Simulated assay, not measured.
Amino acid sequence: MQRICLFPGTFDPVTFGHTDVIDRAIDLFDELIIGIGVNAGKQPMYSVEQRVAWIKEIYKDQPKIKVASYEGLTVNFCKKVNAQFILRGIRYVSDFEYEKAIADMNRMMDDSIETIFLTCSPRYSTVASTLVRDVIRNGGDASQFVPEPVLKTIRNA
């Protein structure tokens, strides 16, 4: 049986924090699906299409990486793509408490899907999309926070 994992998030924008977790998870699974969750209640800075394009560009040479967008419950999307695992990145203890609550809810909805937590590398522990968006909105240099495809988009905006 193939080990298929979903890494859900908004990825608005994709940061080195995200790619750090993805890069370290690749060897753990046969397929890693980057799932861009669409939340009708949130207004993202970048379109879903843009975020999908970034991930496809960043991982164009990595056949194990797939990308898709989805709406609704993450466990339902896992069933749709046959993912037995959900990957979540942890930066701080507070992240773990929040993520564990979500993992527990997901387990109560479907106990066949296991959540895997990976801590991010210390150098990326402060890189959060929310903070990166503030840097971008205020004309700051985001080059130390985002991969080249994202940087190109920002510079061309």
Rank of each mutant, 00 (worst) to 15 (best):
M1S: 13
R3F: 08
I4H: 05
C5G: 07
C5I: 05
L6K: 08
L6A: 11
F7L: 00
P8V: 08
P8R: 04
T10K: 02
D12S: 07
D12V: 09
T15P: 04
F16W: 09
F16G: 00
G17N: 02
H18N: 12
T19L: 06
T19D: 05
T19G: 03
D20S: 03
D20G: 02
V21K: 05
V21C: 07
V21E: 00
R24V: 01
I26G: 06
L28K: 13
D30A: 12
E31L: 14
L32P: 06
I33W: 03
I33L: 14
I34C: 07
I34W: 02
G35Q: 09
V38K: 05
N39C: 07
N39M: 10
A40S: 15
K42P: 03
K42M: 13
K42H: 11
K42Y: 10
Q43W: 05
Q43P: 07
Q43F: 11
Q43T: 15
P44S: 02
M45H: 08
S47V: 05
S47G: 12
V48S: 08
V48H: 01
V48I: 11
E49M: 09
Q50G: 01
A53D: 14
I58A: 03
Y59S: 04
Y59W: 07
K60M: 14
K60W: 13
D61E: 15
D61Q: 13
Q62P: 01
Q62D: 13
K64L: 02
I65D: 04
I65P: 02
K66P: 02
V67A: 04
V67N: 10
A68K: 10
Y70D: 09
E71P: 06
G72F: 04
L73V: 00
T74N: 05
V75C: 03
V75A: 00
F77Y: 04
C78P: 00
K80Q: 14
A83H: 04
Q84K: 15
F85W: 10
F85K: 06
I86H: 06
R88K: 15
G89A: 06
Y92G: 01
S94K: 12
F96N: 09
E97R: 12
Y98C: 13
A103D: 11
D104G: 08
D111Q: 12
D111K: 13
I113S: 08
E114N: 14
L118K: 05
C120T: 15
S121W: 03
S121A: 14
R123N: 00
Y124S: 06
V127E: 01
S129C: 03
S129N: 08
T130V: 10
V132T: 04
D134P: 08
D134N: 15
I136Y: 03
I136M: 05
R137V: 06
R137W: 05
N138V: 08
N138S: 07
N138D: 00
G139M: 05
G140Q: 07
S143K: 13
V146H: 00
V146M: 03
E148W: 11
L151K: 12
L151M: 12
T153Q: 09
T153W: 04
I154S: 02
I154M: 06
N156H: 13
N156V: 10
A157N: 15
